[in-house]
Deep mutational scan, measured.
Amino acid sequence: GATAVSEWTERKTADGKTYYYNNRTLESTWEKPQELK
């Protein structure tokens, strides 16, 4: 079946920190989402 992984995108802030952005829920998080573990 379909997985939720594609909803999350790994992004970088202007100062180079990595965060994760969810295209479906429009939420962002510093922690790696469960779906990516």
Rank of each mutant, 00 (worst) to 15 (best):
G1C: 05
G1P: 13
G1A: 12
G1N: 13
G1V: 12
G1S: 14
G1L: 13
G1W: 11
G1Q: 13
G1M: 13
A2D: 14
A2P: 14
A2L: 14
A2S: 13
A2N: 13
A2Y: 11
T3G: 13
T3Q: 12
T3W: 10
T3V: 13
T3K: 04
T3N: 14
T3D: 13
T3S: 12
T3R: 01
A4M: 12
A4I: 13
A4E: 13
A4L: 13
A4N: 14
A4P: 13
V5M: 13
V5P: 12
V5F: 12
V5A: 15
V5Y: 11
S6Y: 09
S6W: 09
S6G: 13
S6E: 11
S6P: 12
S6M: 10
S6K: 09
S6R: 08
E7C: 05
E7M: 06
W8E: 00
W8P: 00
W8L: 01
W8G: 01
T9I: 13
T9N: 07
T9R: 06
T9D: 10
T9H: 09
T9W: 06
T9K: 06
T9V: 15
T9A: 08
T9E: 15
T9Y: 07
T9S: 14
E10Y: 04
E10K: 04
E10T: 06
E10H: 03
E10M: 07
E10G: 02
E10N: 02
R11Q: 09
R11K: 15
R11E: 07
R11D: 02
K12E: 09
K12M: 14
K12H: 11
K12S: 08
K12G: 04
K12R: 11
K12Y: 12
K12N: 06
T13D: 14
T13I: 02
T13V: 02
T13L: 04
A14R: 08
A14T: 11
A14G: 08
A14E: 12
A14L: 10
A14H: 10
A14K: 11
D15G: 08
D15S: 10
D15A: 07
D15N: 10
D15R: 04
D15V: 03
G16E: 03
G16W: 01
G16P: 00
G16R: 01
G16T: 00
G16L: 02
G16F: 02
K17Y: 09
K17H: 09
K17L: 11
K17M: 09
K17R: 15
T18Q: 04
T18S: 07
T18H: 04
T18Y: 06
T18F: 06
T18K: 07
T18N: 04
T18M: 05
Y19G: 01
Y19K: 02
Y19L: 04
Y19E: 05
Y19T: 02
Y19M: 04
Y20R: 00
Y20D: 01
Y20K: 01
Y20E: 00
Y20W: 15
Y20G: 00
Y20T: 00
Y21S: 03
Y21I: 08
Y21Q: 06
Y21R: 03
Y21L: 04
N22I: 00
N22W: 00
N22S: 03
N22Q: 00
N22V: 00
N22G: 00
N23M: 11
N23I: 15
N23D: 10
N23F: 09
N23C: 08
N23W: 11
N23R: 09
N23Q: 10
R24E: 08
R24Y: 14
R24H: 12
T25H: 01
T25N: 03
T25Y: 02
T25W: 01
T25K: 01
L26N: 15
L26A: 12
L26Y: 14
L26G: 15
L26S: 13
L26D: 12
E27W: 04
E27Q: 10
E27T: 07
E27P: 00
E27Y: 04
E27R: 04
S28Q: 11
S28R: 10
S28K: 11
S28H: 10
S28G: 05
S28M: 15
T29Y: 05
T29I: 08
T29D: 03
T29V: 13
T29L: 07
T29R: 11
T29G: 02
T29E: 04
W30F: 15
W30N: 06
W30K: 04
W30D: 07
W30Y: 10
W30L: 07
W30M: 08
W30Q: 05
E31M: 08
E31F: 10
E31I: 14
E31D: 11
E31V: 11
K32H: 04
K32T: 06
K32Y: 07
K32R: 11
K32S: 04
P33M: 02
P33L: 02
P33A: 02
P33N: 02
P33S: 02
Q34I: 12
Q34D: 15
Q34H: 11
Q34C: 09
Q34Y: 10
Q34A: 14
E35Q: 09
E35M: 07
E35I: 07
E35W: 05
L36R: 03
L36D: 08
L36S: 06
L36Q: 06
K37S: 14
K37H: 11
K37I: 15
K37W: 15
K37M: 15
